[in-house]
Every structure is written in structure tokens, then in C-alpha cells.
Design a binder for these strands. Structure first.
Lengths: 159, 159
DNA sequence: GTTAACGCGGATAGGTGATATCCGTGATTC
DNA sequence: GAATCACGGATATCACCTATCCGCGTTAAC
């Protein structure tokens, strides 16, 4: 079981966007994180389709957070980039074999699937409780309050 | 993000084993669930390596649960079949780019990673709370108390 | 002792999805 | 008109899951 590596990129980018003052091009976001520009663009497009991020085309275009940072959960980003499908997919093997479960019984998911779905629900709930604003605050604590001013400086300069 | 399909097979097999009276060959388990015998064997070997299941070689061999069913959690099975690695893998992109985080700061995982790990912990904790015995009980409730006697009959007969 | 059933590990394909890049198009600003 | 940028499609590569087969050692039955 492996999450798409793009999720890490997307979350970090959202934190940067939450501290930026204007639209930030994909080029800039990729350069700042030392990652592939073209591939990051794909994930940013996914964020855009999900409504998490808004894009501005044209010369001074780029990406901006659509909602305030405290209204964007990590779960929103994960679902947008990694997809909304559950990790566990029930194939209903209880309906196979010599003693298959009846159609009546199979109207509700089996016990195995229910356990898996509950666990994923716990996972999603945990991710839903953390916002991009929370992450930005944790960065300030971890690496210092001067980080984001420096970031804004870098984003503005080096044109 | 997708869990290995073998997890579903393995969990169902463990439920069957918890209700069987003796060693059950992979052949039988596969036939009962209507799935590939050779591929299921691979997953059963993983369960065996993890100590969840014990194998008996030879003519009347097969698989038995090593521990009592109420001491085998769903998490045990998932980790054995799907691997123990986390779904989220931090690549430390905060160390890249023009404003890299210092070595000192990076001694602990970044905020993004901490959130992801906490969510996985919630997921694992949820799976850890459910045992094979619980699942067997839910089967009795869902499809009826006569299910396991019928299963034992099928396992014994049709030699 | 021979045979048959069974678990185990390695080797081997095939298929699917993630990763990564490139190009053309359209929009916007200068 | 030129430069910058988002967007979508096409493509190529790669890793991993899925699935099968074979040879080997073990055990019980005949």
C-alpha cells in the first residue's frame, strides 16, 4: 500500500501558497521544492480541478488557494491528488465457492469490508482535522518565524 | 493508494481457519473462496512467515491458526500480507531548493509527515481492535449460525 | 519402498498504475 | 507580436501487483 508521492508535493505547495501574496507559477513552486516542474504541474492541475486551488492564466499567472488556509484540510488535498477510491476493494469472495452467501445477505458489506472501511474512515477523519493553516503554524514553530518572510522574499525576487 | 487484494483473501482464510477442526490445505481454502490456488499459496506463505499461521507439510498437511482467533488482529494480517511500510513516504523535500531546512531542524519529521503518520496510526489502531474471532462472530450474525457447521461439513467431506 | 498429497521457494510473465516528460493550444500581459 | 503561463493529451519508462509454473523436501497412506 503506497500513497502517491505527489501528495507530499501538493501539501507542501499548499502551505507555500497559504503564505504567498499573489499567484505563484508552477515553475516557482517546483524550483522552491527542488522537484520536477512538469510533473508537479500535473498534480497542481488536480488540485485545480478539485477547487482547492485557483489558476490564473497568462503572463503573470499562477496558483492561489481558493479558500482560506484554515478551510483546506489535508484530507482535501489527499483525495484530490491520490483519488477518492478506498484502499480496500471488496471483491465479494463470499459469493463464490460451494457455499456462497445469499443475495439477501450481500445487500450490506461483509464484516471484513466493514472493518476495513471503518479503519479508512478513522484515517480520513484524522486527516480532516488538520488544515493547511495548522501546517503553516507548525512550520513557524519548527524552523522559525523568519521562514515565511524569507519565502515571500524569494518568491518576489529573482525574477 | 491501493491495498493488495491478497489481504481480503488472507483475512477470509483466517476466519475459515478459526472455525476449522484440523489443518486446511491451500487447495481447500482456494476452492472454498473461488480464487486462484497458486496465488493464494503465496499469501498463506506470508502469513506463515509472520507466525500468524502454522503449516503442516506432508500428506495430510495444511494450515492452522497459530494463536487463538481472539489473539489475531486484522492489523496483524494486513501487515503480514501487505507489508509493514507506511503508505506515506516522506522524501524530505524541505531540504531541497534555495531555502533548505537545516540539518538540526530535520532531526525530527516535518509537520506534513507527522500528520500523515498520525493518520496511519489511527488506521492501524482501528484495525488492531478487531480480531479474527470478532469477524467470525459477525459472520454468524450476518448469514446465520448454521454457516460454520456447514463449512466444517464441507471441509471434512468431498475428499 | 513406492506413491500421492502437501508446503515452500525461486523463476517467470503479464498487466496495471505511478512516474516523468514533451508538445500543442489558448489565455493574458507587456 | 512576443513572452509567460495553465491546461490537456500523448508518450515512454518503471515499479509493483497479479498469476502461474516448476523443482524440491516432507509426510502419510498403501
Amino acid at each position: 500500500m503506497k500513497m502517491s508521492g505527489g501528495v507530499e508535493w501538493a501539501v507542501h505547495c499548499c502551505v507555500v501558497l497559504s503564505e504567498a501574496e499573489g499567484p505563484v507559477p508552477a515553475q516557482r513552486l517546483a524550483e522552491f521544492h527542488g522537484i520536477s516542474r512538469t510533473y508537479l504541474a500535473k498534480h497542481l492541475q488536480a488540485l485545480s480541478r478539485a477547487g482547492i486551488v485557483s489558476s490564473t492564466e497568462g503572463r503573470v499567472g499562477g496558483y492561489v488557494l481558493t479558500r482560506p488556509a484554515d478551510q483546506v484540510s489535508v484530507l482535501d488535498i489527499v483525495l484530490a491528488v491520490d483519488g477518492r477510491e478506498q484502499a480496500f476493494r471488496c471483491t465479494e469472495i463470499r459469493q463464490n465457492g460451494p457455499l456462497p452467501a445469499s443475495q439477501e445477505v450481500c445487500r450490506q458489506p461483509c464484516g471484513v469490508a466493514r472493518v476495513m472501511y471503518a479503519a479508512e474512515q478513522a484515517w480520513r477523519s484524522s486527516l480532516k482535522d488538520v488544515t493547511v493553516a495548522d501546517l503553516a503554524a507548525s512550520v513557524s514553530v519548527d524552523v522559525g518565524a523568519g521562514t515565511f518572510p524569507a519565502l515571500r522574499g524569494w518568491l518576489a525576487g529573482e525574477g
